[in-house]
Design a protein around this nucleic acid. Structure first.
Lengths: 267, 267
DNA sequence: GCGTTGTTGTCCATATTATGGACAAAATAC
DNA sequence: GTATTTTGTCCATAATATGGACAACAACGC
């Protein structure tokens, strides 16, 4: 581990010590969260976190005893346990972002007709928090609410990274290096996509995570200038030619501004 | 800490070591969860967990850095952070219990007309996971979905304790001793209520948590005989005289059996 | 059946990490 | 203004978490 002193951007009080084990447990949890209901095999957690197997094993089993993690008997995979949603109930139900974005998502979805996603950043991951299905008969539904992927592998992730200060983005991308393999991409490619997104004003992937799909993402910023989320349209590639890409991007950018306004209003 | 070897009931593999810090962090989290949106002052966490202040302080602040806990600027209280619901999204949305209980809650609510609660046990707490408002114009709405209290202070808690093996119940009650003060009760009173509930077949509190209310709770068991939840009716005391208590209890017991059947069917 | 490979699980000596007593600084009450 | 309560920090020390090495088990091939 490296001792980082100060960041050029906002917060300066980052590195607090005396809780290595807790931090490790949390990074394990985040990997498990990426596995959703199916969970993740121990070996993969070891691989991705870079911790040793005994350590991961110990952490995971303590968390099982505590009800935070479950182990699927049949597959032996580890997954987020039911105590996590129970803890989550402590918070008021709909997040301010979802409230602020609701009307815009409805409008954009009606207007565009393809599947719309709202994705937030959580640590080094993107997390899909809302999805609206459009009227067009062919819809890209592969990504579900709750889906979690390393920042950088989806157009939403690229958009969010593009909206971050370059050094921060770079740091996240390199931190995710190990996890990129599973998505057939790498640090250089992602950095290239980020640069392209900055130039374009929105994130775009000709080759979506699903074969034959294309995605366009805009970034949504909080009043302090930090990216809060991304709004994404995914569709079969043939439906998003250059002309329509332009059209869709304009709608997304318009609604993005509306959401940013709504956030400001609610704060 | 004591070294428990074996339990008379089910699980025998309980005490795994090498993760004190993680367990402590989790017990802190559970206390914070009880504080809901408002959170809990540090001193209270210290008092209830029995940990030292430096330790709690360290844990809480690491969790803040990780996004698991938030500190409300104005009050200085600590609360569950937004990363917890994000992790929770990894699990499929409606819990099997909620699905199984849904129709029964609807029926019972329509029939009784007073507020109905579904409460689960989570560790040493009860957690309200569903609430149905009845048709009668005066409703007891003080307990909200997500509300968390020490097992023993509500009629639902008493019901769940009554359904547990006596030694387990006793252990939980003594573990909660410190927290009872805040609810104007104590170990002896709670143990008495549990015994009474076992005799009656359902839990009952003449003096509810809210002045002038009365509650009746039945316990719901999983196929293996462990209590999974409690179903509760709360109403102003005058509306629950001896005759109607009897009536309501019978409806609850009937629907309880229906839920138990539904759980068996879904397993 | 019996090696082979790829998992997961366990042990324990050791160094690293988390601990908590004591002290300090805010915030709040008086 | 001082007293009191609450939160925050330090650091020497002991207890805790660590990970190398080994073991058990499962899945596959033949």
């Amino acid at each position: 581990m490296d001792k980082i002193r100060s960041r050029s951007s906002a917060r300066v009080t980052e590195p607090r010590q005396g809780a290595q084990a807790i931090r490790r447990a949390l990074s394990v949890l985040r990997i498990l969260a990426a596995g959703r209901e199916n969970g993740v095999p121990l070996a993969e957690v070891v691989q991705v976190t870079g911790l040793t197997r005994p350590t991961v094993h110990r952490i995971v089993h303590v968390l099982i005893e505590e009800g935070i993690v479950e182990r699927h008997d049949r597959t032996g995979r580890y997954a987020i346990g039911n105590q996590v949603p129970e803890l989550a109930l402590a918070r008021p139900r709909p997040s301010p972002l979802l409230v602020a974005a609701g009307p815009s998502l409805r409008r954009a979805s009606a207007e565009i007709g393809d599947t719309l996603f709202l994705t937030v950043r959580t640590g080094n991951d993107t997390l899909c928090v809302d999805r609206r299905i459009g009227a067009y008969p062919i819809q890209v539904l592969s990504i579900e609410v709750g889906a979690r992927r390393p920042l950088g592998v989806s157009s939403a992730g690229v958009a969010i990274l593009a909206a971050l200060p370059a050094p921060d983005a770079r740091k996240i991308v390199t931190a995710n290096e190990k996890r990129f393999e599973g998505y057939r991409t790498d640090v250089a490619t992602v950095l290239g996509e980020i640069t392209a997104a900055r130039r374009l004003g929105y994130g775009m992937r000709e080759i979506g995570l699903v074969q034959g799909t294309k995605s366009i993402s805009t970034w949504i910023k909080t009043p302090d200038g930090r990216p809060a989320a991304a709004m994404t349209v995914s569709a079969v590639r043939t439906r998003l030619g250059p002309r329509r890409e332009q059209e869709v991007a304009e709608i997304l950018l318009r609604e993005t501004r509306a959401i940013e306004q709504a956030i400001r209003a609610s704060a």
